[in-house]
Design a protein around this nucleic acid. Structure first.
Length: 405
DNA sequence: TCTGGGGTCCTAGGACCC
DNA sequence: TCTGGGGTCCTAGGACCC
C-alpha cells in the first residue's frame, strides 16, 4: 500500500530475528519459496530471481488490521475478530438470497477506505465460510467473493475440490490419519463415520466434520475472551554467553509482558522464565533453563514481575552456554476484581498501581523508550535482527508519508 | 554463519475424595 | 475363590490455529 513498486513482485515477509519466511506473495510462492523456509536458504532466490525480503513489522500490520476491522464492523453488528487478518461476520437477519452483491460491496469498501484487498466467503458454518473464502481468494473468476449458502450443488463441488489438509482444524497429523484411511478431500471427510472420526481425531475432529456437514458448532462470540496466558519471547541476534545479558533481555521481556496484561486489564497469578541454547547447533552443548513461581498476590506491576523473572533466572542459572532465546510466560491471568481477598494482609498498598498508571501514561504519550525499569542498551547483542524493516507508516510521526504538492 | 512468536483446547493418567 | 462405584482436580503432552 505504501510502496506500490512492490506490487506484483516476488516478496516474502520474515519472522522475528529475520529467521524464516512467514508470508509470501503469489509470485514468491510461484518461485517455490516455502512457508517457514529459513532466510539463509532464500538467498539464491534473492540473487537469481529478485526475491524481495522484508522484516516483519507487527506494529504496522496491527494498525492496518484494526482499520480493516472497523470498516467490516460497519457491515454487521455481529463481528468476531479471529486473527490479525480474519474476521467472522454474523449475517443472521440480513436479506437472504444471493449474497454476492453484498459481499462485493464489503470488499470494494474495505479496499477503497483502507487500501487492503480482502476476500469474502459466505456459508452456514465458520468452517465452511473459511472454505468458501479460500476458494474466493484462489479463483479469479469469483472476483474475491463466494457465497456457498443456498447453493447445495456449489457447496458439494467446493468440498470435493478442497484437499482435506486445507480444511480449518485439519493439521498435519489429522491429514495423515485421513490419508491412511483414503480420505483425500473435504467431501470424503463429510462421508466418514462419526466413530472413525472420534477415534482418529477426537472430539475436536468431530466438531470440524459436523461443521463441514453444515451444522454450526462454533458459535460467533460477542467479544474476545480474556487471555489465559501471555508470553513474550525472542530469539537473540547472536548467541549470548554473558549471563548478565540474558538477564537484561529477560528484564525487557518482563517489562513488555507486564504492559500487555495491564493493557488487557488483567493480573497474573504466576510467572515462568526460561532461556535456552541454539537447538539447531547440535554440535554445541545444549541447555534449557526454566523456573516457575506463583505470586503471593496476583499482580501486573512491572517491578514485581521483573523481580520475579530475575529471581527465577538466577535461581536456575547455568553459565558456560551460548543462549539463543529467552522469554517469560505470565499465567493464571484474571481480572483484579476476581482475585480472592487475602485473609492475612490488611489494606492493599495503593502505590504500585499508581506508579504503573503514571508510567503507562507517559509511555502512551511519549513512546516506550521514554521511561522504564533498567532500559537496556539499544545495541545490546541479544537484540533481534530486523534488517529489512518497513517504516511505521501509520504509527510514528517521523514515518508518516508526506504528500508532495 | 543463518531456522519465529503467540495463543487455545483436549486427553490420558495419576492422585485424591466419599 | 472373592476385592465397588462415582466423582474432581491437576499436569504434561499433543493436537490445532494465526
Amino acid at each position: 500500500m505504501f510502496n506500490p513498486s512492490l506490487e506484483r513482485k516476488a516478496i516474502a515477509v520474515l519472522s522475528g530475528n529475520d529467521g524464516c519466511a512467514i508470508a509470501r506473495s503469489a509470485e514468491a510462492k510461484a518461485l517455490g519459496v516455502q512457508m517457514g523456509e529459513p532466510a539463509f536458504k532464500l538467498r539464491h532466490y534473492v540473487e537469481k530471481n529478485g526475491l524481495i525480503l522484508m522484516s516483519s513489522n507487527f506494529t504496522l500490520y496491527g494498525d492496518l488490521s484494526s482499520r480493516v476491522m472497523s470498516v467490516l464492523a460497519t457491515f454487521s453488528p455481529g463481528i468476531s475478530v479471529y486473527s490479525i487478518d480474519e474476521a467472522f461476520l454474523d449475517l443472521d437477519g440480513l436479506p437472504l438470497g444471493d449474497m454476492t452483491p453484498w459481499c462485493q460491496e464489503v470488499r470494494a469498501t474495505v479496499l477503497r477506505w483502507t487500501g487492503i484487498p480482502i476476500s469474502v466467503g459466505v456459508a452456514p458454518t465458520k468452517t465452511l465460510a473459511k472454505l468458501a473464502n479460500r476458494m474466493a481468494k484462489r479463483s479469479p473468476r469469483t472476483g474475491g467473493c463466494l457465497d456457498l449458502s443456498g447453493h447445495p450443488e456449489w457447496l458439494q463441488r467446493a468440498l470435493k475440490q478442497t484437499p482435506v489438509g486445507d480444511v480449518w482444524g485439519i493439521g498435519r497429523q489429522f491429514a495423515g490419519h485421513c490419508g491412511v484411511a483414503g480420505i483425500r478431500t473435504a467431501w470424503d471427510l463429510t462421508q466418514a463415520s462419526d466413530g472413525w472420526v472420534k477415534k482418529a481425531m477426537g472430539a475436536v475432529g468431530l466438531r470440524t466434520v459436523m461443521e463441514l456437514r453444515g451444522t454450526a458448532v462454533h458459535a460467533l462470540e460477542d467479544g474476545p475472551a480474556d487471555k489465559q496466558t501471555t508470553c513474550v519471547s525472542r530469539s537473540f541476534g547472536e548467541a549470548v554467553e554473558d549471563f548478565g545479558q540474558v538477564r537484561d533481555a529477560v528484564v525487557s521481556f518482563a517489562t513488555r509482558a507486564a504492559q500487555k496484561i495491564r493493557r488487557d486489564g488483567l493480573v497474573a497469578g504466576g510467572i515462568q522464565a526460561f532461556a535456552h541454547t541454539d537447538r539447531f547447533r547440535q554440535d554445541q552443548p545444549q541447555h534449557i533453563l526454566s523456573g516457575t513461581l506463583r505470586f503471593a498476590t496476583p499482580t501486573s506491576s512491572t517491578p514485581a514481575i521483573i523481580a520475579a523473572a530475575t529471581r527465577l533466572l538466577e535461581a536456575n542459572r547455568e553459565d558456560g552456554y551460548g543462549y539463543k532465546k529467552a522469554g517469560i510466560l505470565l499465567f493464571e491471568l484474571v481480572r483484579p476484581e476476581d482475585v480472592p481477598r487475602d485473609l492475612f494482609s490488611s489494606a492493599k498498598d495503593p502505590r504500585p498501581e499508581a506508579l504503573m498508571k503514571a508510567v503507562d501514561g507517559l509511555t502512551d504519550r511519549m513512546g516506550r523508550a521514554v521511561i522504564g525499569f533498567g532500559l537496556p542498551a539499544k545495541d545490546a547483542p541479544w537484540r533481534a535482527k530486523s534488517e529489512h524493516r518497513s517504516p511505521n507508516w501509520t504509527t510514528q510521526w517521523e514515518d508518516i508519508p508526506v504528500v508532495k504538492a
